[in-house]
Every structure is written in C-alpha cells, then in structure tokens.
Design a protein around this nucleic acid. Structure first.
Lengths: 189, 189
DNA sequence: TTATAATATAATCTC
DNA sequence: GAGATTATATTATT
C-alpha cells in the first residue's frame, strides 16, 4: 500500500529519547505500580473496504448508519448488544437480495471485520493452479492475478497465506498418520 | 515440497487438469514477468533455540529431523515435482528470482523458525506501559525487562520493533482516513 | 459442523 | 531499525 509514505517522512520517535536520557523512570515504577487499566489508546483499524463516500465519524472511520440500534452501541466491536440480525430475519421477505447483501456488509463492518470474500469456482481454480507452481508469488504476480481475476491484491495475498497454512496443516496431519501407522506396524506384536 | 502428496488425505488436483483449465492466461505469462535482481548469498542465521542435541548440518546449524517421511519428500513445498533444487534448475524460466528467493526463505524456516512466543497478559501490559514512555528502549532497559518478565532480551527487542511498526501503521491509516474525510467534506455535492 | 477468509502479531529477511 | 513479508494462532462466517 503506497499510502502516504511521503506525508509521513519522519519516523515518529524522539518523544522517547529525551526522556530515556534521564533515567528518571525505573522499570519498577512502570512494572509494579502501574495498575491502572488506562488502555493504550487503541487505534481503530482502518476499514478500507468500506464505502469511501460514507460519512466519517469522529474517529476518522466511516460511521455506519444503522438507525435501529440503541444509541451508545455504535462501536464497531462485537459486543453483547442485540445485533441487528433480527432485522434481517424479520423483514426478509420485504427486502431485496442485494439489499440484504449490502446490509450484511454493513453488519460485518459494524462488527469490525471485512466481509468474507466468496471466491468463484474459477477464481479458486486459477489460484490453485498458480499455487501449485509457485506458492510464494511476489507482488508482481499477485498484482497480475488480481487484475485478471478481478480481485484486490490483498485478497490474493491472504489467499496464498491461508493456502500455505492449509498445506502445512495437511503435512502435519499426514505425518501424524505416518507415525501412527509406523507404531502400529512395528510395535504391536 | 509436497511432503508426500500421496499421503495427503485430500490430494490436489492433477497438474494436467489444471493447466487445461487455465485458459484465460498462462501461468508462464504470470511467472515470467519477474525480473528482480539476484540476492547476495545469505549467511545462515543462528538458531539458538533449536535443540542443541540435534545433529548439525553442513552449515553448522542444526538440521531438522523429520525422519518419518519417505526420503526425497523432506522439503516443504507444494507441488508434485521432485526436489526444489531440481526444480530451480529445471524450470528456471518459469521461476522468478523472487521465487528462488522465497525458496531460500522456506528452506530456512524449515531449518527452524523460532516457535511463536505467546506473551502473557501481564507481560504485554508491562511492555505496553514501557512503550508508552519509551518506544526505543536501549539494551539496558531491555535486559532489565527481560529479567523481570522472564523473557529473552531478543523477544523484547522484537516486540518493540513490531510495536513500533504497528504504531506507524496506525498513523498511516488515520492519515489516510483524514484525507478521505477531507475529500468527503469538501468535494461532494 | 467444517472449511476457510480475515485478523493480529511474533519471527525473519533485506536493506 | 525500518519495511515488507512470512508463519502461526485465533476468530468468525458460510
């Protein structure tokens, strides 16, 4: 992502160095005493997949307009509040498929997660084909794939990551089976 | 490389089958594009965390012994082709430099990647507290932390490195969102 | 329920 | 040390 690296040419620090010079704080003081829960200002994750035209909230993230929720429950975090799922079920028959779909996307965002991508059969086929030849495609290959499959490059990268993990898992499993098999054939009389 | 694809419970589709299927673009065309410079010879890093009793490879590093697999299937790479060295030689033209590079990486993690450390809640809390005050702790502070948190100094160092990266990422993201926001408030209508 | 897309982050590698 | 990328563990969706 070539975001605005230029806008941020200066590595942040320096706040620390000056302080560090004075050993005025000991780890003890930080370690032991600091029992405040004062969370580090949790940075809201960016949701680049959300509609860029949507109005932004004060946090800089797009705010969702889900009018049916009790106020104060707008945080994009899975919680205990009643989820709007209900609405989907209730109004099912009065709501078009695409409407339901986009609502679901909003819901996902609301929960703070990119809506799960559903790859088509063809997309998967191509990805698998490439994977067989090269399970570590570089950025260039990924971009190319993205173009050709009409997917974001990020989806491609994630796909390969997960695919490698899957392969590894299966290796572990077959190894395990081998062990078991060997134990069975060799040990028991 | 396919640690025995045969033993794999869910064998991958055959290569032939897949090639036939990828009509729209050839894998070669994708793979052929890469023209990055060759990397300089890599010095194998030490793997102090591997079992010292394990036999050492020619490079002086412990080699991983995964004795249970049929010989010839020891290298972790998907595919139905033989050994990776061979593949590199054979398929040179289909394999980009970056791919050869990533093969090296694979090989090295195979030799032994440090098992992922799972920090405790308390350890993280302390680290975060220190980070807030000083995101570039010197070796002395790190050593101190290591002692107190019962972690290796190296873990601490890496943690701070990753933590700084995370912070930076979040800055970039919020900057990006700011830009977007400004575009939204100024342009539309 | 299972398979797998997405997330978070520890570890690794090049520079 | 930064930056990019990877492996890995987990979560959550279909």
């Amino acid at each position: 992502m070539a975001l605005c690296a230029a806008a941020n040419p200066r590595p942040l620090p320096s706040l620390a160095e000056s302080k560090a010079a004075s050993h005025s704080f000991s780890i003890e003081s930080i370690l032991g005493l600091d029992s405040k829960k004062e969370k580090s200002p949790t940075i809201p994750p960016a949701r680049p997949w959300t509609d860029p035209c949507r109005p932004l909230g004060e946090d800089g993230n797009p705010c969702l307009s889900i009018p049916l929720l009790p106020s104060g429950s707008l945080l994009p975090h899975p919680g205990n509040y009643p989820l709007p799922e209900e609405r989907i079920l209730k109004c099912e028959k009065y709501v078009s498929a695409s409407e339901r779909f986009s609502f679901k996307r909003e819901l996902s965002w609301y929960r703070g997660r990119r809506p799960r991508t559903a790859f088509t059969r063809n997309q998967i086929e191509v990805l698998e084909n490439v994977f067989r030849v090269n399970s570590y495609p570089g950025i260039d290959v990924r971009e190319d794939l993205a173009r050709k499959l009409n997917l974001e490059e990020d989806r491609i990268q994630i796909w390969f990551q997960n695919r490698r993990a899957k392969l590894k898992r299966s290796h572990r499993e077959s190894q395990f089976l081998m062990v078991k098999k060997n134990l069975n054939t060799n040990l028991p009389k």
